[in-house]
Amino acid sequence: MIRETSYDEVFDAQTHFRLIMDSMARPGKLNVLNGVAIQPPDSLNRASALIGLGLLNADVSFFVARNATAITTYFTVNTASRPAPAAEADFLFLHGNDSPQHLDAAKPGTLTYPDTNAFVIIDVASISLHPDQTTEPRLQLTLSGPGVNGQQTVFVAGLNEALLTTLRDKNAEYPLGIDTILTDQNDQILCIPRSNRFVVGGL
């Protein structure tokens, strides 16, 4: 059990929120969340942990897919948020190589209150705007929609394509859907709000 003492819940949370909001308003724009020496448990990217520390509190619940005991304790201790099953949680912390069952179960909201959906944070290996930075197999994602000026292409390594297929199915009935944040091991984040459409190409 790790109590994060170096995390400043006023100024760090504000700084990171602004970066998350910037990425959410401009899908395809990568931002880096760092500047704090936190020690998240295994199977949780540092950027994912910072999103949790910045947005979770006692009013919302979360679900963790991998290394659930350690990460659940981590978030409970540091944010006072509570764990919940995937179908009820407000935030889902998934891994890029997971099967899509948890994402499939996530809340899409209702037509009268589409804002009651879940945020899904997915840990992947790397995200980049250029195809030449990694040698791992990676997916080419072409985003379009509100926030994107025309189209924006990003390359993601360590992401199961079945997750994207499920995400597209979940987001088919806009304004219902899931708002997704991908985080990588270099502390970068990429947002895919439900208003955006994406095309997947292998590379």
Binding site: I20, G54, L55, D179
Partner: peptide, 18 residues
């Protein structure tokens, strides 16, 4: 800070559903 977090989450949702 608790209320700020709530407003921040709602702002993110608002951006996701223009």
């Amino acid at each position: 800070e608790n209320t700020k977090r709530e407003i921040r989450r709602k702002l993110l949702k608002a951006i996701c559903i223009p």
